[in-house]
Design a protein around this nucleic acid. Structure first.
Lengths: 192, 192, 192, 192
DNA sequence: CATGAATGAGAATTCATTCAT
DNA sequence: AATGAATGAATTCTCATTCAT
């Protein structure tokens, strides 16, 4: 286990601060100075780690997106049965969105606005391939509807983001029971 | 038929300009001066119609949200059968999101970020009541799953936003066939 | 005679302030805020008149350079005898450099450093054509040495800048007598 | 022959880097960090050799100015005839300005702007004494015009800087022939 | 009602300088 | 001696908002 260099700690602090401030105030109301203060460094220091504000947000996005993907495929293996594999992935994603609320909320904000430039977005997109592969296999086996993967995503994964938003705003409280029900709905919508 | 006052025209122009600029550049990169220029009025004029920038965006949000709701319940009547009613509403919403892309994109950006303050958000929320009522009726009749309306919304309506985003980015092209398939998925996920 | 618009006054004030401050402190030690203060406007106002700092300095340069050229050809006419014409131009230039010290000093600072970008420099260069024409005529008549116009300029006009610098620093005091002597030297160096 | 200490090498590297960067970008666009990088040392190291940025530039100026003076009086001896001596010095200076372009350009930039503070400037001025002495002798012998040494300098030495600038910008190409012609003009302007 | 020049607070970014290692 | 990460003051520039016309 390697101890992160002092500088890596600062970089993480900056990323954490950015997520929190952008979540609470939006990109437009998050000055670099505040990020610096919250991260406990001086304003100039940010520019040792990131080229500029855009680069900072891009890197945060990529970092969080890839943490998300790692989380999504925890305990999943390529050889699994389609339904079993899907369930694992779905639950992972739900767990991420409900446990790592800050990160999840940040992602959904970026995904729905022009904050992230195209380069950053492309980077973030790469990661869901194993799920797409699983769906393809499911379609071959006649288990999954023959629609585009975007559509499958829209009806089975994307809804989780909404549930998270509502829970975040206190409109909804999610527990094991709810989540199982939600999973059923996801599976029902994509299964043949 | 009432002819809009000259000033009402300007107000609409400002709203249209705001939508377009915020869609393309994000709230943070949309200065009042650009909005004014695109609307063909002077910078100062905005303040005759709106208190300040926040008020402008709030009002745009409310306006668009209520246009959306009006659209959603076109041809719908309270007495309809649950499935029929749901289909009408769902298709309306889909049509809105795929025809009125600018408005729809603006809404999804606002709904996923702290651009809109809480007051504006509450205003926008009121409007889906007839759908909620329909669902409640469906649940009483044993047609609709016994989950919270947020969950029903997450799995049946919210996915449309994702499809729209993908179409907007050119990743997906939607036609009557696709849309029917999507509707099936929506209904499958909420029906008992 | 036309009264300058209020805004034209401000523009001139900004130009004057820039000249003075750059003369005294150099480009690098002349912040926009000081220029604004000296011109009696707010910092942001500069950007109504000039795109950015580089543009400001460029425009000042062009403006001063063209005032200089106008001055240089006062009372000069194309048809004049070569020596008479040269004397008039030379004396004009000397007068400018010794009367309009601020402007002259500013020009010499710009001409000897990379402050002005190439675009601005090209603009400023256009203006001495009548002198070059006169020299060409003089060469045809066998009155002026057959060397490049740059060389003629170097030995007859450029020295005035040095005299001005020295007077500016108090090392030298120029009067009518001195100036006549200097003119003789200029003419001696270029005449055949 | 003494081998320069390692540290003396670094000092020279820093001076060289400063000259080049100030020539190309101007003082105002030459950060210490760039100087350090070009000299191949770390930013902090500069401060082991120079007190601060101003001190660095001052010392560079003095160093270059004194190299210039050494060059100027190569092969010159006090007892020489006035015209012979002047010719030697003039050609030396011309050679310096045309060979050691970087150094010469740096000097002319400093001499025409407030980059160098008064202290540095005084230091640099001392060095031309032998030329002034020569001129005084020439004036006593009735060979040189009875004008101030500044004026003599302006018309005979200063023009070389202009020629150098023009050559530097590609407007002019100087060869042995040109230079002889220029020397004639210099001598013509100061001789009685 | 409408304008748009002017403001000035505040944002992003740079850079000379310091100091712990 | 040398490093280079860190600082924070200073700088350029933007932009929401006001107000005289």
């Amino acid at each position: 286990m390697n101890i992160p260099a002092k500088s890596e700690i600062k970089r993480k602090d900056l990323i954490r601060a950015t997520i929190q401030l952008v979540n609470n105030n939006g990109f437009h109301a998050t000055p670099m100075s505040k990020i610096a203060k919250m991260a406990g460094v001086s304003a100039g220091t940010i520019y040792l780690y990131f080229e500029n504000k855009q680069d900072l947000v891009n890197q945060v996005y990529i970092e969080v997106k890839s943490a998300f993907t790692r989380y999504a495929f925890k305990n999943y293996e390529e050889g699994m049965e389609v339904e079993e594999g899907f369930k694992i992935i779905w639950k992972n994603i739900a767990e991420f969105k409900l446990q790592e609320v800050e990160e999840a909320f940040f992602l959904s904000q970026c995904d729905n606005s022009p904050i992230i430039d195209e380069a950053g977005r492309q980077e973030g997109l790469k990661h869901l391939q194993p799920l797409l592969d699983l769906w393809k296999k499911g379609q071959k086996q006649g288990l999954i509807k023959e629609v585009s993967p975007y559509t499958l995503y829209a009806f089975s994964i994307y809804p989780i983001a909404f549930l998270m938003n509502m829970q975040q705003r206190g409109s909804l409280r999610l527990n094991a029971h709810n989540i199982d029900a939600a999973y059923e709905m996801a599976w029902n919508s994509i299964k043949k």
